[in-house]
Design a binder for these strands. Sequence first.
DNA 1: ACCTGAACACCGTTCAAGT
DNA 2: ACCTGAACACCGTTCAAGT
Lengths: 217, 217
Amino acid sequence: MSATKAGRPRRKRAGQYHHGDLRRALIEQALRTIDAAGADRLTLRGVGAALGVSRTALYRHFADKEALLAAVAREGFRLLREALLEAWERDGRGAAGFEAMGVAYLRFAIDHPSHYRVMFGRFVESGERDADLEAEAESAFGALVDALTALQRDGLARADDPLLQARFVWSVTHGIAMLVIDGRLRGCDEDAAALNRYTAERLRQALSAEPAPGANR
Amino acid sequence: MSATKAGRPRRKRAGQYHHGDLRRALIEQALRTIDAAGADRLTLRGVGAALGVSRTALYRHFADKEALLAAVAREGFRLLREALLEAWERDGRGAAGFEAMGVAYLRFAIDHPSHYRVMFGRFVESGERDADLEAEAESAFGALVDALTALQRDGLARADDPLLQARFVWSVTHGIAMLVIDGRLRGCDEDAAALNRYTAERLRQALSAEPAPGANR
DNA sequence: ACCTGAACACCGTTCAAGT
DNA sequence: ACCTGAACACCGTTCAAGT
């Protein structure tokens, strides 16, 4: 729109570095590359080139490649949390909403397998972890804890430690997500659907108030 | 011992390439590096140097770096399968043996987190997968299917499709393993132990023959 | 402040050449 | 057959210099 945007697109004008938020643009470009080709194929030089920016411009906003990946992972947990909350609330904050959360979780992993992989499996040996990333992951996990607490209040789930219960549920869901995006279920669609159905049943049984005989409480 | 081993250790003797099985040595060296520093830190040049061999010698035995990693992953599934079978048989091929398998699985993941990570999470975008690796992974999974089949025969588990049931159990265990080695459980030891205990209980409940009323079968 | 361009120390992989 | 050494096309990262 503005006159300063005119001129040859390949040519850099003096004083015209980059439009508004380069940091944001870097994250989004990295995410595009990761979704399209996987995190292994991500190069800082490629990200810069795609944005028409020098390959060292990135270092003004990120300490190194790991920091960029941490930002991408953080963005993933933010999107995941939003998807979980949306599903939970849309389907009535009850048993149906809880199952919808599970579906939304798997959908996220299946739709963005490379992004999902960056969110986990990083920082094994790094020792130090990004505090913001940690907080965002905890926040997404919190959506699950809150849902289970609500279910317990309404007598729809065993009255166990919600944190422990949430970790168990997360383990199951994360495990399925990994098996699916690793392609370890052969007849992909059908097998995955069957596993989802079976798991939902088993989870219902595992979390229901114990009906077994002999328990005095 | 032999006279040919004498001489300067840094100096290469003419005609003395490498002792017996270089392929095996390459896998084991790669595994050492991965266990010590993580798969990200693995370089082919480093592996060659550690073995006193040129950095291109590797290409006589592996097509590329990915192929070496596939061999390392395959070795992992072999070791995992052995650990699972050993636990299952040692503890009596029953309910106790089944729980021992779970413990052995988590022990493997915790003792070799980087190796465990290489076994999963690879080959997202590669398309083609190593057939031998696939077979070894299937074989390890088979140990779980066999155990569940035996439990069902003895009336110790619901009579569901063993394959589906095994996938569910694997998902849970894999999910926990990932949470633990990602360091997502804060008070590492204590929290992990509590989660293991809780999960074992929930799994018992989820796999027990359904005691719910109203079922006519 | 933010960005650039050259430079450095690495990679994986290829290939003609040695034994 | 198996291994070597030089070479190629890449990386991430640093840094003095520009505006």
